[in-house]
Structure formats: structure tokens, C-alpha cells
Simulated scan of single mutants.
Amino acid sequence: MIIGYRIRKGIVYFYFMARFSYLLLTLLLWQCQNGVDEIPIVGPAYAGPPTYDGGFRFPRTEQTISLGQRLFNDQNLSIDSTISCATCHKADAYFSDPGNALSVGLQGTPTHRNASALVNLAWYPYFFAEGGVRNLKLSSFVPINNRHEFGRKLHDVVEGLMADPTYVEEFNDAFRAQPITDAQFVTALAHYMAGLKYYDSPYDLWLGGDSAALNTDAHAGLELFQEHCSTCHGGPQLSSFAIAANGLPTNADYGRMNLTNNAEDSGAFKIPTLRGIALTYPYMHDGSYADLDTVLRTYNELRELGMNLEELAQLKAFLNSLH
């Protein structure tokens, strides 16, 4: 009896082990066939970890990034097929719109604000001038819904993509699921934009330990910058990302107050990064300052900083080292 029981117990054990091994092998084979190489978002040590890591639901892969790049450059996403993200965010100028105070939107209408640079977005705590969006993945809702930019609803855009066989194939390759969803759309764009990283300027080389990366004027300008500007524009992203008023005219744009309806927030905007600033002119939320010389003179007078012409030139030399 005891021997028979042990035999039956052994048979049951081996049956379940064989069944488990079969299921495990099947799972491993599926992972090999469908496996993806996740691409992490990384920067230099001094930048610290990003606030956006690609999200936990969909891995950030070569396929999702490539798809996001196509979406970023596709004018057909706008209601009249004339506007893409790249229309106002040009790759050769830190994804800003140089030379344009306001970008040209749908049917030639101007956008509400100056197009900000899209640089190192994965390290941002929130987005847009009021700081109203706290996740990179959700940031694409704003231009798509804006009547001067894409003029559409996100779900309508996604439905349009499902009518394009090439998009259906790319989304399936990227996400291994059909049909195309709103979540896949915003994730692909975020995965691409998270890769718009710039950590190779002379200033970055200096931060990395190359003491010769800044010339004499730029180094003198750095010292002036640290004295007069670093409270608002400190840290590796050259911004505290605080929401604040700078004391300049806002041309009837109420800034943060548009979200909070709090009079104390009138004229307050997110402090922007200064990375690539020499190429992202004109300046301020409305593009009302044409060049760096105007900005520096204005702040020197407004804040009573007392810098002479030589010092202003040195500070400008440092700002020119940020790209």
C-alpha cells in the first residue's frame, strides 16, 4: 500500500513538473519571438535620473521611438493636413521656432505663445508655460486640441490612423496589439520626445570635468551667471522650473492665473530652460524680445544688476556656450 501510494505520488509529481516545464518553455519561446530591447532614457551623472522613464505599460523600443518620430513630423494629423509638431518645433534649433515670435498655425493664424524648445523633456517636472501638464505622455493632448494648432480631438486623430495600413502595421510592430489606441498614440510621441536630449555643449563638457571647455569670456560669464541668474536658472537643466512672474509686461497673458483663477498667479509662467538659448530666439512667452542683447540689457536695468558692457558681453559668451 505504501509503495503504491508513493508510486502514484511520484507519477502526479512528474506529471505536474512536465506540464510546468512545457508551459515555461512555451512562454520563453514566445518571449524570444516577441521580445524587444527596451531603450532606457539616460543622461550624464550630473543630470540625475529623469522624471519620465518611458512608463511602465509599454516598453520604450526602437519601434515606438521610430513611430513617435513619424507622428511628430506628420502634417496629416492636423485637421487640414498643414501642421505637424515639427512645423513649430524645428530640429536644428533645439526644436524651437527661431525667428518667429508666434508660430503660424492653422489657416495662417498665429499661435497663442512663442514655441518653446523641446530639450531634455524627460527631466521636466511639468510642461507648458502655466505648468498645467505633469506628464510628458499627456502633453500631446494640448496642441492636438488647440484650435490654432491641430484643431482636432485625439480620438479622431487615432481613428484616422486606423484607416492608413502603414500606420496600422507600424503600431502593431511597436505595441503588439490592435486596434490603435489613444494610449499607444501618446506613448509613441512621448517615447520619441524623451530622446530629444542635448548634453554635449561646451558647458556640459565643463560640467563633466573638462576645465578647458569654456573660453576666458565664457568662464567669466559663468561666474556672473552664478551670481545673478542661477536662482531661477540653476541646476543641470538651467531652470528651477518654478512658476514665477519676472516683472516684465505680459501683454494681457495671465499665465498661471489661466489655470488657477488666482490673482496672485497673474503674469506667472514656468521658468524656461536656457539650454540652446542662442538658437531659440525670440524670447519670452510671447517672443517680444528679439535677441539676447535686448534680454540682458532689460534684466540688467530691471533688476539693477549693475553690469557694465564688458560683463554683459561675458554673460552673453556664457549663454552662447549652452549649445
Rank of each mutant, 00 (worst) to 15 (best):
P44H: 14
P59M: 07
D37S: 11
A93V: 04
A93I: 04
F20H: 12
A86R: 09
C32P: 00
R113Q: 14
D97G: 02
A93S: 15
S21E: 06
T109K: 13
I41A: 02
W30N: 01
A45P: 00
R57Q: 12
G55M: 05
H112K: 14
A18M: 10
P40C: 09
I79A: 09
A45T: 07
W30S: 04
S66P: 03
L106N: 03
L106P: 00
S81F: 05
L29Y: 03
R57C: 01
S84F: 05
P40W: 06
P49W: 02
N114P: 01
Y94H: 13
S21L: 13
I41Y: 12
S84N: 07
A91D: 05
A101W: 09
F16S: 03
Q63K: 15
F56E: 10
P50E: 08
R60P: 05
T61W: 08
I39A: 06
T64M: 07
C32G: 08
T82R: 07
A86H: 03
L106Q: 01
R8C: 10
L23N: 08
T82C: 03
D97E: 03
E62N: 12
F58P: 03
H89Q: 11
L27E: 13
V12K: 05
L28I: 14
N34G: 02
T61D: 07
A91Q: 14
A18N: 10
S84K: 05
T26Q: 13
H89W: 09
Q63H: 14
F14H: 10
D97N: 15
Y15Q: 11
Q63V: 05
N100M: 14
A18H: 03
T109G: 03
G54C: 12
P50G: 04
Y94S: 10
S81H: 13
G68H: 09
Y15P: 01
G99A: 11
C32R: 10
I7W: 09
F16N: 08
P59Y: 10
T26W: 07
C32N: 02
N114C: 09
D37R: 11
D74Y: 02
Y52N: 06
I7G: 01
S66R: 14
S66I: 00
P44D: 15
I83E: 02
N100R: 15
M17P: 00
S103N: 04
D80Q: 06
R57I: 08
V36D: 06
I11A: 12
G48S: 06
L23C: 08
T82L: 03
R57H: 11
R70P: 04
A86M: 02
S103A: 15
G105M: 01
R8S: 10
T82P: 01
N34V: 00
R19V: 13
R113D: 03
D92F: 08
P50W: 04
F20I: 13
P110N: 12
L67D: 11
A91M: 07
N114T: 12
H89F: 08
Y46M: 00
A115S: 15
D92I: 04
L67S: 11
R113I: 04
R70E: 14
T61I: 05
G99K: 13
P40K: 13
F95M: 08
A115K: 12
N100T: 09
P49K: 12
R60N: 12
C88K: 04
D92R: 15
I39C: 05
Q31G: 01
L77S: 02
A18F: 11
P98F: 10
E38R: 14
A93Y: 15
S103P: 00
S78N: 01
F58A: 02
R60E: 08
L29Q: 08
A101F: 07
I65L: 08
D92V: 10
L25N: 04
K90A: 07
